[in-house]
């Protein structure tokens, strides 16, 4: 063995399924160690068996119902199809920092009720993000219950957005009183223990705002009103990270 310590299976797996540089390193080790070669050969046999067993499924013709679904989506002239362009446009505007002007031209300025949304969200964040024992009433592990309960209480379909792509995992949710009715508060946490609060409350019809930024102490957030829902994402995070998370939440809420 070329190293002083024997290589355990986990180290071997890191090399075998890692980056190209890892695989090069593995090749060097293999050249120097026949016993390692035998261990690797066993895994090669496993992979070959799995490929022989299951690859034929990938060669079968794709069932018609899968194809039909995609074909229907490609044809659909409905709102779903137009949304990607709108969102892409919104993102482009956000990226070049002209969002304020753009949205001001498109949408009316917020009234006091919508501005309250940010305040309420900040308050909820301040209260619950620091809670160690009972941050949420219903944990994310009871996902379907959480979803139906929040939807029922807020009176609108609420699906907690998946922010795990940005490293934030849903902890769960609770309901809170809001000036416009009942609000849902969803709490998220990342691996560093940083928390985010997504506050969603009913909004009056005919009101739409785009992303607005709010700050209160260390907490800051983005908020928006769309489709009769007021939403605010609050956390103690860098501005850019919050904006990215807010866009992700915005997209997902928009789909429901």
């Amino acid at each position: 063995m070329s190293d002083n310590l024997p290589i355990d299976d986990e180290a071997l797996i890191r090399l075998r399924h890692g980056e190209p540089a890892d695989r090069e390193k593995l090749a060097d080790l293999l050249a120097a160690d026949p016993s390692l070669r035998e261990r690797l050969a066993e895994w090669d046999r496993q992979d070959a068996a799995l490929a022989t067993l299951y690859n034929p499924l990938a060669d079968e013709p794709v069932p018609a119902r899968h194809q039909d679904l995609l074909a229907a989506a490609a044809r659909a002239p409905g709102w779903r199809f137009r949304w990607p362009e709108r969102i892409a446009a919104a993102m482009a505007f956000l990226a070049i920092g002209t969002v304020a002007g753009w949205f001001a031209a498109l949408h009316q300025m917020p009234g006091p009720a919508e501005a309250d949304l940010a305040t309420e969200a900040m308050r909820a964040y301040a209260t619950y993000s620091v809670e160690v024992l009972h941050p949420v009433e219903v944990p994310a592990s009871a996902a379907s219950h959480l979803e139906s309960w929040l939807s029922k209480r807020v009176g609108r379909p609420i699906t907690p957005p998946d922010l795990s792509g940005n490293g934030f995992r849903l902890l769960g949710g609770r309901v809170l009183p809001d000036s416009q009715g009942t609000a849902a508060l969803m709490l998220y946490e990342n691996d560093l223990g940083q928390r985010l609060a997504l506050y969603v409350a009913p909004a009056p019809a005919g009101v739409e705002t785009a992303f607005r930024f709010a700050q209160s102490g260390a907490a800051q957030g983005f908020w928006w009103v769309d489709n009769r829902l007021g939403c605010a994402l609050v956390g103690d995070l860098p501005h850019d990270a919050l904006r990215k998370l807010s866009l992700s939440a915005y997209d997902q809420i928009d789909q429901t």
């Binding site: 499924l57 679904l69 993102m91 997902q252």
Partner: peptide, 29 residues
Amino acid sequence: HALLRDREGAEDLVQDCLERAVARRTLWR
């Protein structure tokens, strides 16, 4: 198929997955 080891269940799962993906494809950036 390899995961579920049940033909019908696997096709249903793929169909479900595709439905969700199509509905949420704006999320993919």
